[in-house]
Design a protein around this nucleic acid. Structure first.
Lengths: 157, 157
DNA sequence: CCGCATCCACTACGATACTG
DNA sequence: CAGTATCGTAGTGGATGCGG
């Protein structure tokens, strides 16, 4: 491993602001953790990861083998897939099953905990699907404006 | 800018498997985009970003200045904050307002589009808050097992 | 004084080759 | 097939400097 994830983060419970906590945790004040050593941040960084997201999304209610995941997730290196799966396994989101056969066979599936996360991630994917056109439009507009500005700057020089 | 995000991704609409799409988007088949050049993947990589997530989460129904964001997001470099904000602005999720005063003042706030994303992200944060203890436990168990295994290996040597 | 671009050191990533 | 080990590259963080 190359990641120093073993460092012990301050085991802050839920942290809104500096004191009281709203428990329900959605109508809450605008302030929350954001401290880097906070457990929540650590987990968010893991969950809100490019590859983790895709792995979890793909493991919805089915087992997949290493190679199957690799095939399905276009562009991932086997290295990153290994690392990502290990992290998710460590976090208790993914279960790794090794079949002692030859050729070796390893299945990955979501744990119950991972299943609850899947719902949330799925909503993120759905959001993306629904708004991709708006975003694409915004990008074009932004790029067009940027281009115009750089031209204007060129003129004034 | 240093990112080649200007490359035009294949403007695939919603892509489940190779053909039809379920629209509702949750009871759907297990298969979806995953192609790297797909628009959805591009956006997911942006949204499922460590820093983007935090920025959007913090900009819930309020304007924040650059420095305020920098203060609140512990551990972010001003460089990454700049880059992240630019990306979010380009994607139409964040609105940037420059006040031509001295000292300069720049406000950032969510666009309506960004507001819809905020809901989703908020649910992710909530999930993390609710399950952080389970994850912490899973990590300890994993680390303990790993330690035990490496000791066993040391003995067998 | 704040926002942001630039320089440099570093870490994480991707591609390849190798092992059980 | 499922990884680990190695190495070159690209992205990231930190300090500095400049423009408004």
């Amino acid at each position: 491993m190359e990641e120093g994830t073993s460092k012990s983060p301050s085991h802050c419970e839920v942290t809104y602001g500096t004191g009281h906590v709203g428990d329900g945790g959605d109508t809450d004040p605008f302030q929350w953790d954001t401290r880097e050593d906070c457990e929540v941040r650590q987990i968010l960084d893991r969950v809100a990861d490019k590859w983790s997201l895709l792995v979890i999304a793909l493991l919805d209610r089915r087992k997949l083998r290493f190679t199957e995941l690799r095939r399905e997730i276009d562009g991932i290196s086997q290295r990153m897939l290994t690392v990502t799966l290990r992290q998710l396994e460590r976090d208790g989101l993914v279960k790794r099953t090794v079949h002692p056969v030859v050729p070796p066979r390893v299945d990955y599936e979501l744990t119950p905990l991972g299943g609850t996360l899947h719902t949330t991630i799925r909503s993120l994917v759905t959001w993306t699907e629904q708004h991709q056109n708006e975003i694409a439009a915004a990008r074009e507009e932004y790029d067009a404006r940027e281009r115009a500005e750089s031209e204007a700057a060129a003129v004034s020089v």
